[in-house]
Amino acid sequence: MKAKTIFFIIFMAFLLYAAFEIHPFSKPTSKMDDYIISNAQNETGANNVVTSVVFDYRGYDTLGEATVLFAAVSGVLVALRRKEDKHE
């Protein structure tokens, strides 16, 4: 229990160190995103840049997201189903 607490605190301390090491808040490095903002309208025809990212530049991730949802629905149906026949 004690060791658990100590490890937890040290772990969080390192993550906190990471929070101080990240770029200053509200001044992100941007190269890919600048390109996307400037060219999303021309390349994808969407006025909303986030839409263009979700459905065009990173559409494959969205396919994965839909798959996750489908898998989770099937998974919940499998996990909560009642047994029809007592074969085992």
Binding site: K31, M32, D34, Y35, I36, N39, Y57, R58, Y60, D61
Partner: peptide, 9 residues
């Protein structure tokens, strides 16, 4: 390589 980096997956 738009903007010298890959944008797409």
């Amino acid at each position: 390589l738009q903007a010298a980096v890959p944008i797409r997956i």
